[in-house]
Computed example of a mutant assay.
Amino acid sequence: MKIPKRIQPLVDDGLVDEVTSQLMSGKEASVYIVRCGETIRCAKVYKEISQRSFKKAAAYREGRKVRNSRRARAMEKGSGFGRDQQEKVWQNAEVDALYKLAAAGVRVPKPFGCFDGVLLMELITDDEGYVAPRLNDVVIPPEQAIEDHQVMMGYVVKMLCAGLIHGDLSEFNVLVDEYGPVIIDLPQAVDAAANNNAEWMLARDINNMRDYYGQFAPELLTTEYAKEIWALFEKGDLKPDSELTGEFTEADTLADIDSIMQEIDSARIAELERRERAKEASDGVDESKFNWAEPQ
């Protein structure tokens, strides 16, 4: 196929030898299958901010630090230079998260570097060599659902111990190969210690997984992993190999307070995202979902 303009510099530099097909086009990036020597990989091309529907909501950016004070000031003011720097921080967040999580024992695609807004990484395939399906596209026996859910809870714990929360974890951001689930799409990963929305985002990630796997194993729907994991994290007792039960007991009064705070957090995040959308309304919105296809 014709080489996309953004990938051409990688071809010129010998990092990519051939673009074989487009794998998907999503709200923040397009992904292509590429050949690098004898190895097949994928290239994630981040869309320009004016072409994206996901606008890096303030709730996700909170807590991300920039060492260069000039860049930080420009990002706060929203100048042209500042927006360019914010874009680089957004893209580098995914690369940094991939390296950090792989080192922590979380299954993610292996990164090979980010070059001017193009992330080269491992192509996850099934046991027949085809592109691995998303979790949303597979039917799972009850026993397998319980096993894979436990694996995912283990990954969430390892991520949290590494200081990160995915922030957008769902059945659409998990691939399934012959060895089990693989977590993808991490540009919005948040700092668990510095982001005030961390607890809310962690609970949403965990409950998304609970609800999805619970379709196949209903007993999972009554679990309370989100509260159990966060309680251990707050106490400083959470370890990568912590044994979880999925159970959590709290006093009725505390439960009521927790419910109220949850509603406050939800309203605050909704307002932050509304302001973000209003600020960038002139950029246009495309709500199309991912379209996955097997390599041609």
Rank of each mutant, 00 (worst) to 15 (best):
M1Q: 12
D12M: 12
L23M: 04
V31C: 02
Y32M: 01
A43I: 00
S53Y: 11
F54Q: 09
K56I: 08
G63W: 07
R64A: 09
K65W: 06
S69A: 14
R73L: 12
E76P: 09
S79T: 14
E87P: 05
W90D: 05
L98V: 05
A103S: 14
V106R: 06
K110C: 01
F112W: 11
F112S: 01
C114I: 02
V118F: 06
L119W: 12
L119R: 10
L119T: 04
I124D: 02
I124C: 01
I124N: 00
D126Q: 06
Y130W: 04
Y130D: 01
V131R: 00
A132K: 03
L135Y: 04
L135S: 07
I146L: 10
V151I: 13
M152E: 05
G163A: 08
G167H: 03
V176R: 06
E178M: 13
E178Y: 12
A192D: 09
N195V: 07
R204K: 13
N207K: 14
N208W: 09
N208P: 13
K227E: 06
A231N: 15
A231E: 14
K235I: 08
G236Q: 06
E243A: 10
Q262R: 11
R268M: 13
R275L: 10
R277I: 10
E280Y: 08
V285M: 14
K289S: 13
